[in-house]
Design a protein around this nucleic acid. Structure first.
Lengths: 200, 200
DNA sequence: TCGTTGCGAAACTCGTACGTATCGAAATTG
DNA sequence: CAATTTCGATACGTACGAGTTTCGCAACGA
């Protein structure tokens, strides 16, 4: 029995290129970022964009959907760190993260896919939701619950309703707001309207 | 010169079938309602679903996009009639129309297309927006402005912000709310939270 | 050095859809 | 009736992309 440094044996032969793998994922996200829907993506376009043979793709993923799942799962969700000084500040941090990310074409289009192809690729969405959406959603829920507990928010506030108002409003602006970048103080204004309400 | 009843002469030959035209539009909307994106629609599928020859489609529309434009333009926007008794009631009427429409698969998917394919088919979106979205948007704007004028809403309220909160929140529920139909009192609850705010 | 495996490129088969053309039948005008 | 136009059906040539295979070369372990 030969010496084996780690638990997993390194198989014989040329190792798979880490660089090619990265390039494939990047190319996939690029194309999605250019507005392609999942069904418009072609493996051939991805291969060509990545400077890679189709073989190299099929050696790693058995079909298009698997590749897209992995590509989207790559997008990490660095939930912004929260100061915890006040509910208002924390909500602004969370919403402002949405605003600044929406400035990047790639993020916008990933969101678009999340909205539009959920029915047709449920497994894809599942994974993407768990990875990218759920952490933020839980962070916001925690902030709101803290606010209810310590009196900064109405005791009878429905938590899901609060989340819907905040997230929905931001989402609306990213999709149908004025063209170009969103105002830097948008998150603050949204939070203030949500907290204070529209009635006098 | 022969007698001609109307200004336009009826050409000789078999007239185009009104029924076929309807069936084609219906089939197109059906397929969209089943989750197809614009680029996934195939003329052949539409023809087969409508029980019609491809010829009959190409005789009327020169390509897929033209057909989809006409099909979407078909969807009318019957803005709900407003009582005008109070801003709260009118807003609830507007939002409840969104809720009840979201129960119909066809409407949901049309909305999906509006969200996801705006970049790729701008002319299509233009026409759809004018026809289906703009009337509702203006109705809501009018209600909010009325509320500001007569003191039912905060004098310093940003109208676009108010619309974003109301519409965005409803949209969020239709897309990511609990599965199944939305609560019948959802519109009321959304309006109340928006008016009163989340702070105590 | 040799065996093994990954590499990009290219050729291949196969299915799908496009857009056009052609068919016999049906509907309409004159 | 004849002329004209549409009808649904079907066949056709073209194009594109999926997924597979083959090729000569590169990278690695033994």
């Amino acid at each position: 029995m030969t010496i084996q440094e780690s638990g997993t044996a390194r198989p014989a032969g040329r190792p798979r290129s880490e660089k090619a793998e990265k390039a494939i994922i990047e190319a996939t996200l690029d194309l999605i970022g250019e507005g392609m829907g999942v069904s418009d993506l072609s493996i051939e376009a991805i291969a060509s964009r990545a400077g890679v043979g189709k073989t190299t793709i099929y050696r790693r993923w058995s079909n298009k959907e698997d590749l897209v799942v992995d590509a989207l799962a790559t997008l990490k969700a660095p939930v912004p760190s929260l100061t915890g000084t006040s509910v208002r500040d924390d909500l602004i941090s969370l919403l402002d993260a949405m605003r600044s990310e929406s400035g990047v074409a790639r993020n916008r289009c990933v969101m678009k896919i999340a909205m539009s192809e959920a029915d047709r690729y449920p497994q894809l969405m599942d994974r993407f939701m768990k990875r990218a959406i759920e952490p933020r959603r839980q962070a916001m829920r925690a902030v709101i619950e803290r606010g209810i507990a310590n009196g900064e928010l109405r005791a009878d506030l429905d938590v899901s309703m609060g989340m819907a108002v905040l997230t929905g409003t931001m989402l609306w602006f990213t999709k149908w707001g004025p063209a170009g970048d969103l105002d830097v103080d948008l998150a603050e204004r949204v939070v203030d309207v949500a907290l204070a309400g529209m009635a006098p």
